[in-house]
Each structure stands twice: as C-alpha cells, then as structure tokens.
Amino acid sequence: MFILNPLIETFDLSYAYRTGSDRQVQALREVNMHVRQGEILAITGQNGSGKSTLARHFNGLLTPDEGEVLISGLSTSSRENIPSIRKTVGMVFQNPDNQLVSSIVEEDIAFGPENLGLPPDIIRKRVDHALLTLNLEHLRQESPNQLSEGQKQLVAIAGVLAMRPKCIVMDEPTAHLDPRSRREVIDNILRLNREEEITIILLTHYMNEVVHCDRMIVMDQGFIMMEGTPTEIFYQDGKILDYGLDFPVATRLARSLKLHGIDLDDNIIHTREIVERLCQLK
C-alpha cells in the first residue's frame, strides 16, 4: 500500500517487556501502522493494551525486538538516527510533575532547545513563541509547582513545541486533569495542529476527545484491532465495547434511537450533529 507523506511507519513491530530472568510480557505483536504528515491520530485502548509502548517507539525511547519503525524514513534501530528522530517527534507524558525540569517556567521551556545546541537568541525566540502560542506569557517567571495541573501540562507542551518538532505524541495528557482543564488542553492541541501544522498523535480513552481526531486506532493486548475514521469505527457493530471502550454520548444516543425506528444516518459522533438531525426530524 502506498501512503502519501508517511511521517511514521511501523513494520511487523513486536516488543516484549522483560520482568525477572526468563519471564516476559508481550506488549506489541506485529504492529503495522503509519502516521500521515499533518493529521491528528488517536490511539485508544484500555489500560495495558500496549498503546503507551507503541508511542515510546515513535521517538526511539524503545526500539523494536522484531520489525522496524521508520521516522521520516529513518530507522529507530540505528543509534545515530536518534538525535534527528527526537528533533522530529516530541513527547508529552501523563504526569506533568515528572517532566518539568526547572523551577522557572521559561527556563523549563528552554531546556529542549538548549539540548539542541541552538544559539541563545534563537532559543529566546522559540521560548517566546511557545509561551505566546499557548497563552502562558503571564506565567513566564512562575515556579511550576505553584501552577494548576492544567497549566503545568500546557507548560510541558510548550517545552516540546519550542523544539519545533514535526509531530507531538501525547501520552494520555489529560488523564489527571479535571474536565475543564482537559478541554483547554485538547483545544490547544487542536490549534497546534491547525495553525502550526504539527502532526498530533493522541493517546486517550476519552471518546469525547477521539471524536476530534482525523483517524483512530484501537489496540487490545498488543494488537491493532481497528483502524479508520472515528465515524467508521463507532459504527462497526459496537465492536469497540469488546475492547473495554465506550461510544461518544452522541453515538450512543443515535444508536439507541435507531433501534427504536428513528431514521438516522450511521455517521453521528458529535453532539451538535445529533441535535441538528433531530431538529430536522421533528
């Protein structure tokens, strides 16, 4: 299959965690997938499905036991490619407390560009731009441990943004946030994709976040079980429930209404879509 503009490709990727001397847990099994330049891809699956392990292959934090991962054509298995790969793919993790290095916001954001060995004035420009893009300018001199969890996560995203990656992988960035901060973080991620043309890979099990993505992958027990647009996947006879996930509220309602004989198309995933459609029917 020919894929237009592949940024990330995996070929028969398998990986196992070794626990103890001879025990091992197979986390990924023959995973074949790709990420297109410019898209927002959601990777979902219940805890332990292997999504985090997969994500850690995208910037060479883990390397395949078998198979291969290519980032812009470079294999993560050769060590000399790693610096260039980490410049291309940035990562944001679940707990912001464990990824902030400095005790001042702007210094933390500068940490990545500093590691890239950029001249001071360029670093300054990138830090300013990242602060501006995520509306964090007023917090520039604050200490991260005085910020709210949502603000800390935005600082972590700014730190990655300042490295100017082509792609940002977000490993459940909203799992520990309250719903309001969760939406704020998601809005910012969507904006980065739109305005800065950054490819986004979002790991999540909140279906109301998945509906904003261009494409989604469902994982279970280390396998890729489903792949397609959110609409396609949510209307494949409810298979998603077998993998411990849920429907978005609008889809759940639409499916139930259909069972009661209401004429609805198989493409409703957003709340506003179902409201519009029901108004037409009334």
Binding site: Q46, N47, Q94, E172, A175, H176, H205, M207, G244, L245
Partner: peptide, 8 residues
C-alpha cells in the same frame, strides 16, 4: 477513578 479506562 482518575486515569481509569471506561471499563475500569
């Protein structure tokens, strides 16, 4: 329930 998947 923070951080749990829907089934959990």
């Amino acid at each position: 329930t923070a951080g749990l998947d829907p089934r959990g």
